[in-house]
Amino acid sequence: MRYHNITKDDMLNGEGLRVVLWVAGCGHACPGCHNPVTWDANGGLPFDEAAEDELFAELSKDYVSGVTLSGGDPLFPGNRADIAALCARIRQRFPDKTIWLYTGYTWEEIQNLPLLKNVDVVVDGRFVQALADSQLHWRGSANQRVIDVQRTRASQEVVLL
């Protein structure tokens, strides 16, 4: 897996103060995407031990609520195995931190992915420029949903946060 940036002290991409991992690779190519530089799966830098150490150093801070995985798309097929392993390591080491994941896939397309057992919130759906609204909380367009993953998995019906 490759990544473009680790943003520290972020308040825009999830609840609370967060660290954001911007991964490389996205096949959606949504018109109006705010981060098209991340589409190339071969772009950015390798997510190596030093990058993980940097991410975990931020997560170890008491005032950081959790991590947000964005990009690109963390669920780009080439990223899924590495994202699954990373989420498992985060959950094990930081059980009280939340994991948010932004994806262009809908919940219905990804709901059976095993990695979701370690994710707290998914913001799903492609960005649709015609539905863009800067007043929306934690999402860019009105078609996207902020989904409470564990409550959704338990009830088998989408539960919005």
Results as ranks from 00 to 15, higher is better:
residue 103 T to R: 07
residue 52 E to K: 15
residue 59 L to C: 13
residue 152 T to C: 06
residue 109 E to R: 11
residue 93 R to V: 04
residue 7 T to R: 15
residue 68 T to V: 10
residue 56 F to N: 11
residue 130 A to Y: 00
residue 127 F to R: 08
residue 5 N to M: 07
residue 108 E to M: 05
residue 122 V to W: 02
residue 82 D to W: 01
residue 31 P to H: 13
residue 13 N to R: 13
residue 132 A to K: 13
residue 29 A to N: 11
residue 56 F to H: 12
residue 43 G to T: 07
residue 146 V to G: 09
residue 63 Y to K: 09
residue 111 Q to F: 09
residue 115 L to R: 05
residue 15 E to M: 08
residue 90 I to K: 10
residue 89 R to Q: 12
residue 135 Q to C: 07
residue 145 R to F: 13
residue 19 V to W: 00
residue 145 R to I: 00
residue 21 L to P: 05
residue 75 L to W: 03
residue 46 P to R: 11
residue 149 V to D: 12
residue 48 D to A: 05
residue 4 H to M: 06
residue 34 H to T: 12
residue 96 D to E: 13
residue 54 E to D: 14
residue 46 P to S: 12
residue 24 A to F: 01
residue 50 A to F: 07
residue 76 F to Q: 08
residue 116 L to Q: 02
residue 57 A to K: 15
residue 107 W to L: 03
residue 91 R to Y: 01
residue 125 G to L: 04
residue 129 Q to C: 00
residue 95 P to N: 07
residue 161 L to V: 15
residue 26 C to A: 07
residue 61 K to R: 15
residue 15 E to C: 02
residue 62 D to K: 15
residue 142 A to Q: 14
residue 158 V to M: 14
residue 79 N to E: 03
residue 10 D to I: 12
residue 145 R to P: 04
residue 138 W to E: 10
residue 18 R to T: 01
residue 75 L to T: 08
residue 89 R to I: 10
residue 85 A to W: 04
residue 65 S to T: 14
residue 35 N to E: 10
residue 158 V to A: 13
residue 132 A to C: 03
residue 157 E to T: 15
residue 43 G to P: 10
residue 74 P to K: 04
residue 83 I to P: 02
residue 8 K to C: 05
residue 4 H to N: 12
residue 87 C to A: 15
residue 45 L to C: 09
residue 75 L to P: 08
residue 22 W to C: 03
residue 61 K to E: 14
residue 97 K to W: 06
residue 147 I to R: 06
residue 99 I to H: 05
residue 29 A to L: 12
residue 45 L to N: 14
residue 49 E to V: 15
residue 83 I to W: 00
residue 51 A to K: 08
residue 24 A to Y: 00
residue 97 K to Q: 06
residue 11 M to P: 00
residue 132 A to P: 01
residue 141 S to E: 07
residue 51 A to Y: 07
residue 110 I to N: 00
residue 10 D to R: 00
residue 155 S to C: 06
residue 65 S to G: 14
residue 150 Q to Y: 10
residue 14 G to F: 08
residue 2 R to G: 02
residue 64 V to H: 11
residue 9 D to I: 13
residue 75 L to Q: 07
residue 126 R to A: 14
residue 23 V to H: 00
residue 122 V to S: 04
residue 154 A to Q: 15
residue 82 D to L: 01
residue 28 H to R: 08
residue 100 W to P: 00
residue 21 L to M: 05
residue 52 E to T: 06
residue 48 D to P: 04
residue 60 S to Y: 10
residue 17 L to S: 05
residue 151 R to Y: 01
residue 7 T to W: 04
residue 144 Q to I: 01
residue 39 W to F: 12
residue 39 W to M: 09
residue 156 Q to T: 02
residue 59 L to H: 11
residue 84 A to T: 02
residue 85 A to F: 03
residue 33 C to P: 09
